[in-house]
Write a protein that binds this DNA or RNA. Structure first.
Lengths: 197, 197
DNA sequence: GTTGCCATGTAAGGTGTTACATGATTTA
DNA sequence: TAAATCATGTAACACCTTACATGGCAAC
């Protein structure tokens, strides 16, 4: 369970409610899990049971109570232990490549239409990624949620450096996708423009 | 369910037993699912129920019977329909990046040890990937299983081109990881060699 | 007046992994 | 003697996603 540690990490920066954590995940390209990830609520309950976090309930008028979670000493230790555990290789689930693998039954024009759509989507994603990286020195108000893992809000210069590197990684990943698909498209159209050759 | 279509795709090349499909997945970097993926047996049953594949049972002495699956016309149509469906963006589950995000509590030397391990693992993966790409013109006997999605065994020159592109993509992906981690290591050691600066 | 924000959660389903079970034959 | 290969499968678990439910307030 990785999301467990992602949450612990966020809480190691500051205390947050479940809703805030959810927002942070949803807004973050880096820590992205799912648009509507309610798994975090159950995870918070189990973290609380395991005494890795404490919770303070803040009652409000006309709104549901906010439950503010904070990391405990046990939680910090568990996080540190996990951070030191041997790294896993990244898992890339690239459905589109599998689709492409069986695409020879299509006309070159049909294939290119798919590739074109993929290029657009990837380009959008890259722009979003770059936009987040460039938000330095903008009004702090504008980025309440995405302040996390943004190098401006890092606690030490070394942490800022790490977070920038992670940001770079995601940029490089999408740039890589983009150049790959662009090269593929030009080669495909150059060599197989007429269907069935 | 993607594995459904990955299986249909394999069967569109030639009839295979569950065991052969499993082997192909395990040996393939491109279609990799899991070392011990028994999900395929249940998937084959459901494909059979849906009449997308037929099965022929071949009894043997001293061994369990082989069940040879073949794609049906319905299966081919379903595959083609899926191939034409709008592409999904790749999903990268990069646990190590999350780990790194909270690694500022470590000494620079500890961080570098993690990065070094990651670099080695990535390098190994890249070498494996490149080895598969370079097996052209080797004896066909040596690569019974991995013959799939290898450009030599493609059915048309355009398919060979597609499969080569997919191979290129995976090479580029791991190369990208490698250069990223190498750059990160040198910068880290240059700027933060002494713990806590 | 409908969308979006705040704020929590439950329940069901989808998908993938791991462990286990069987059992003969070949290879190191 | 231990392991790997052939060949199938079940069961349990882990993890993630989707849909649903609540309900008032603010903004467009």
């Amino acid at each position: 369970m990785t999301i467990e540690y992602a949450i612990l990490g966020l809480l190691s920066c500051r205390s947050m409610t479940g809703y805030e954590i959810k927002k942070t995940f949803a807004d973050s390209v880096v820590l992205y899990w799912s648009d509507n990830n309610n798994q975090i609520y159950t995870t918070l309950v189990s973290l609380h049971k395991g005494e890795l976090v404490t919770r303070e309930i803040q009652y409000q008028e006309d709104r549901p109570a906010r439950k503010i979670y904070s990391i405990t000493e046990n939680g910090s230790l568990a996080l540190k232990k996990w951070v030191l555990s041997p790294p896993e290789l990244p898992q890339l689930k690239h459905t589109f490549l599998v689709q492409l693998a069986w695409a020879d039954q299509l006309a070159t024009e049909e294939m290119d239409a798919l590739l074109c759509k993929y290029e657009e989507d990837t380009h959008m994603q890259l722009l979003m990624c770059q936009a987040i990286g460039k938000t330095e020195k903008t009004s702090l108000e504008d980025r309440k949620h995405m302040s996390f893992l943004h190098s401006d809000s890092a606690r030490t210069p070394r942490e800022a450096f790490i977070w920038r590197s992670i940001q770079d990684h995601w940029n490089a990943f999408y740039e890589n996708e983009l150049t790959w698909v662009q090269k593929l498209r030009t080669e495909l159209l150059n060599n197989w423009r007429n269907p069935l050759q």
